[in-house]
Design a binder for these strands. Structure first.
Lengths: 209, 209
DNA sequence: ATGAAAACCACTCTTTCGGGTGGCGGACGG
DNA sequence: CCGTCCGCCACCCGAAAGAGTGGTTTTCAT
């Protein structure tokens, strides 16, 4: 019964080295067990179905299916899934999306081993583990800064080097509409121009790097 | 003598988890030994002076002092240092800079454990380990694409949302000169506009994300 | 039902961008 | 010595961007 009471952990990250690091940290804990690993979102969903882990560590940027979509997929199928987001940068809107989707924890990749295991235990015990600076940052961003889906769509095309006219053609809307979107994007991100807006959006995770 | 003949490795990365993963991989090899770790370039230089490792694994993006500067510092002091670059993205100009500075290997963070140890052994044996797709990519980029220092300087300010006029003021040059630089930047990167240029420069590692 | 928000569109006006073309001085290598 | 590359600067000009102000429709929550 001692063995079966271990915290069963699933680790999802596209870097084998990071998975090894996590495995290394977990195997030193006698109350935790790494039951499976996945290198992308698709594998993650499959692994979750098969192993039903107590806690899932989920990287955000991954090939094929990212952490957001994987979190959504898992949570919709298993509403009780306890997922901890693993990300590199703190000002990451993707992370707050995942938290809205029901992720219960948030870890920066620059953390220490002890923070990792503390978070796993805490989350397994039913707590949410969101660092205060992140929580405030999210609250901050979510008030005024949140770009609409359409705005992100526009900005993505702009970032690929298209003029307003070209963007309009690609999205089947008028150039003036594109200008309207750009105007609200600049206002929301407090950017000086489109170039600045793209940079800010990248740093905040609206646009993939 | 058996112990002292081990390959002495220094590992430099700002993520404890990655360092753990590397440590884990190395401790399974009986011909390798992790003699020190560093979390940034400054620590790396100090650790190198102290331990004189046979092989150094060097991450590129780090706080305080990045992998490029650390590589330059170490190589200028110890021309025989064998440094392997560890990076996330393959199309990384920073990596080719490091290789020009004398780094002898190049590893993507998405690699397998076996690739890591193979590369360490190979590099220690005196070989260079640069994946062919990287080598060709570098050769490709280095032909026409290389931005001059001044151009990068200009582009960095542009990326922060400044108009040509403001850039001119900040760099104490004429607006027309800024335009001239922008023109050659757009030509070299084959970008449609400044926004596109910034995106391309970021992807290639000219600009830090 | 009413108000807010989002997506859509149109018109004006000024500023900025980017292309084209020209020239000048310094550094560096063949 | 000469060519080339870089950084610097100037002028013109058409196109694009961005700010301002107007409007419609749909959707959605209060």
């Amino acid at each position: 019964m001692a063995a079966s009471s271990k915290i069963r952990v699933l680790c999802v990250d596209d870097h084998p080295l990071v998975r090894d690091g996590i495995a290394f940290a977990l195997q030193q804990q006698n109350d935790m067990e790494l039951v499976a690993q996945a290198k992308n979102g698709i594998d993650a969903v499959a692994a979750f179905r098969q192993h039903r882990p107590d806690v899932t560590l989920m990287d955000l940027q991954m090939p094929q299916m990212n952490g957001i979509d994987a979190t959504a997929a898992i949570r919709s199928e298993f509403p009780n899934a306890r997922i901890v987001i693993l990300t590199t940068y703190s000002g990451d809107i993707q992370a707050s999306r995942a938290l809205k989707l029901g992720a219960v924890g948030y870890l920066l990749k620059g953390m220490l081993r002890t923070e990792l295991i503390d978070t796993i235990r805490s989350v397994h015990a039913g707590h949410r583990r969101i660092p205060p600076e992140i929580a405030s940052e999210i609250a901050e961003h979510y008030s005024a800064d949140a770009l609409s889906d359409r705005e992100i769509e526009v900005l993505r095309v702009v970032a690929s080097g298209c003029s307003n006219k070209i963007v309009a053609d690609k999205l089947f809307i008028s150039e003036d509409t594109v200008k309207g979107h750009m105007k609200s994007i600049l206002a929301k991100l407090q950017a000086n121009d489109r170039t600045h807006a793209v940079m800010i959006a990248m740093k905040r995770g609206f646009l993939e790097g």
